[in-house]
Nucleic acid binder design. Structure first.
Length: 494
RNA sequence: CGGGGCGUAGCGCAGCUUGGUAGCGCAACUGCUUUGGGAGCAGUGGGUCGGGGGUUCAAAUCCUCUCGCCCCGACCA
């Protein structure tokens, strides 16, 4: 028996998540969401409860993105949850796109029904029903039409953080829920060129969020006509490749042209003295990004939080034996935590009375980037032991507290770049250039691993190939900017 | 919304075919020993078997309706 075989026998692999990614990716995903304590199903079909740790993650994403949005000169505002039915029907394509998934509010009072149960009061039916916003183009457009009089009122740059509702047929935690959280930006401009540039710019903002904070390496490009937002002239998207080779649309940005300004009446007196319709854009990123993060970075032991948006960047695990010296160890841990906070690191101390191994596994499953163990030995020597979540137990290192505080920023930075690199090389390795329909079919039929085929856009008009794509649930993801519209990515998607 | 699978203790499951009033593992709780990569022993508590209706002396089990979850599609962030 070789050395490596011995090791394998001595420490049989036990993963924290069952099943593993290779066994059943969909179930693995569900397990990670639960094991990492991010969210759970609610009594309301298709809606989820986001638990404190999951919401803490969303707050970090919000904070990072909100800063970037404000850097672009956009102001936050808030528009109503309820949208008059007539507003939704203003833009023809918009109606087609959203009508079938709208929740509608029809009554304003409950009363005791004949069977002793509360029912919507028949005498309290609304004259005009309200739609719970599936997105807010129309109601924000209504405000914009009042706020914009002159070209001097443009550009008008607005964003709101809110919830929206789309009555989905099939839901999955974070990836698709009927109610979800997002930000939706809505900008209005004087010229078509400005709107087009804005749509591209906001997509770039999303790309930088993914790269710089979520350590993900998405594909950016324009959507093909059939994948466009209802009512948009052009739709751009961030497409991210998950570990099972499927695509996740991770953010979108739309150039709406004058479609909404015409239907909502956003007009202004131009420099030439005559009346013009504004050119608008809209752009959004949702809690789905959390699903993308999980499926990009997770492993068979659970979540791996990218350090820059981890709600807890460091978790300190006090190792106490009985009561002997426990107080000293905890005080030592609190002292380290204070020093970490002082240098801007988000730190948490696990003061639960669980045993040390259980604390460790809880931290592993939740994906806390760095675990710090402190016990009686470290207290005496002024040291600590730390382990990186992304590298595992092999990375266990002992050093002095001072040295650790001095290098913590670098450690977290290294981790970010290492996770980003892994994500980049993975995404890249799963894209295969296919110049012909035959090559594309061969790829999807013979490749052992799912991924994207990059094909010339002319092949989209190939009818036989369109049938093949439909039969195999292969959709166009986007036409990457780098190919200047000549190529399109084809793959399966969430 | 179509096809398939599944709802029994917090979680994972057995029991259902051949009806007889519910069990296993983990978790929880108590005590002792433990504690630096998933601890051991002993003991304890917890379920109107998703819900409604039906068949029957008797239903987790049979029939029916309904709700929910998961997977594969269609649709979509």
């Amino acid at each position: 028996m070789t050395q490596s075989q011995k090791v394998a026998t001595a420490t049989p692999q036990r993963t924290a998540i069952i099943p593993t990614r290779a066994d059943n990716f969909a179930e693995w995903y569900q397990s990670v969401v639960k094991a990492a304590d991010l969210a759970e199903n609610s009594p309301v079909r298709g809606s989820m409860v986001i638990k404190p740790y999951g919401y803490g993650l969303w707050e970090q994403i919000q904070r990072a993105l909100d800063d970037k949005i404000k850097d672009e000169g956009v102001q936050n505002a808030y528009f109503p949850l309820l949208i008059p039915l007539s507003f939704i029907s203003r833009e023809a394509e918009h109606v087609d796109g959203f009508a079938k998934e709208c929740a509608v509010v029809t009554h304003h009072r409950l009363e005791m029904g004949p069977e002793g149960k509360l029912i919507p009061s028949p005498s309290a039916e609304l004259e005009e029903p309200f739609v719970i916003r599936p997105t807010s183009e129309t109601i924000i457009g209504d405000s914009m039409s009042k706020w914009v009089q002159s070209y001097r009122d443009l550009p008008l740059l607005l964003n709101q953080w809110c919830n929206v509702m789309r009555w989905e047929m099939r839901t999955r935690l974070f990836l698709r829920t009927s109610e979800f959280l997002w930000q939706e930006g809505h900008n209005a401009f004087e010229t078509a060129e400005q709107a087009e540039a804005d749509a591209r710019k906001m997509l770039e903002v999303y790309r930088s969020l993914y790269v710089d904070f979520l350590a993900m390496s998405p594909f950016c490009g324009e959507k093909t006509a059939d994948e466009r937002f209802p009512g948009a002239v052009r739709t751009y998207s961030i497409e991210s490749m998950m570990q099972d080779g499927k695509a996740l649309q991770a953010a979108t940005s739309h150039n709406l042209g004058q479609n909404f300004s015409k239907s909502c009446g956003i007009k202004f007196q131009g420099r030439d003295g005559s009346e013009h319709f504004a050119h608008t854009t809209s752009w959004g990123l949702s809690t789905r990004s959390i699903g993308g993060l999980i499926m990009t970075h997770g492993d068979d032991d659970g979540l791996k939080m990218p350090p820059r948006i981890a709600p807890q960047q460091v978790i300190i695990l006090p190792i106490t034996k009985g009561d002997d010296g426990a107080a000293a160890v905890i005080e030592y841990a609190q002292n380290i935590a204070a020093q970490l906070k002082a240098v801007g690191v988000r730190v948490h101390i696990d003061l639960s009375d669980a045993r040390a191994p259980d604390k460790m596994w809880a931290a592993i499953k939740r994906g806390v980037p760095l675990r710090v163990e402190v016990g009686g030995r470290e207290v005496e020597e002024g040291k600590l032991t730390h382990t990186r979540r992304d590298l595992g137990r092999e990375s266990k290192t002992s050093c002095s507290v001072d040295e650790f505080i001095g290098s913590i920023k670098n450690i977290l930075d290294d981790m970010h770049h290492s996770m980003l690199k892994t994500s980049q090389s993975y995404s890249k390795s799963r894209v295969v250039d296919c110049q012909t329909a035959g090559a594309m079919k061969e790829y999807f039929e013979t490749s052992l691993e799912l991924g994207f085929a990059k094909i010339p856009v002319e092949l989209l008009t190939d009818e036989a190939l369109a049938v093949y794509r439909k039969d195999n649930a292969l959709t166009t993801r986007c036409m990457p900017f780098e190919d200047e519209g000549r190529m399109v990515l084809i793959g399966k998607s969430y």
